[in-house]
C-alpha cells in the first residue's frame, strides 16, 4: 500500500464537516456516483483529508463524489459527482 493509499480514510471522517451543514445523520445517507452509478453509504465512501480540502471518492470507480473546502466563515461543497443523495427520514 503506497503512502497516499495508507492515508485513505472513509466517510466517517468527513461526517463532522458535513453535519456542520446538513441536519441529518450523514454517514447513513446513500450517495450515487455520477461517474459509474454505484451507490454506497457515505460511511463507505473513501476520503482523502490531507489535501487543503476534503476529497470524497467513489469506492467502486474512484471518481470524485464530493469535495469540501473550509475557509474562514464558510464551507464550500461541490456535489457535482453525486448523482443523488438518498436521505432516510424518520
Amino acid at each position: 500500500m503506497d503512502h497516499i493509499a495508507a492515508h485513505r480514510l472513509d466517510g466517517n471522517a468527513a461526517a463532522g464537516r458535513l453535519e456542520d451543514v446538513f441536519a441529518v445523520e450523514i454517514t447513513s445517507v446513500r450517495a450515487t456516483c455520477n461517474g459509474c452509478g454505484a451507490t454506497a453509504a457515505v460511511a463507505e465512501l473513501t476520503v482523502y483529508a490531507d489535501a487543503p480540502g476534503t476529497v470524497i471518492r467513489c469506492p467502486s470507480c474512484e471518481a470524485v463524489v464530493m469535495r469540501l473546502a473550509q475557509v474562514p466563515g464558510s464551507t464550500w461543497i461541490d456535489l457535482r459527482g453525486a448523482r443523488t443523495l438518498q436521505i432516510p427520514l424518520r
Partner: peptide, 8 residues
C-alpha cells in the same frame, strides 16, 4: 463536536 455517525 458530536456525537457523529449512525452507520458504524
Amino acid at each position: 463536536r458530536g456525537p457523529i455517525g449512525g452507520y458504524f
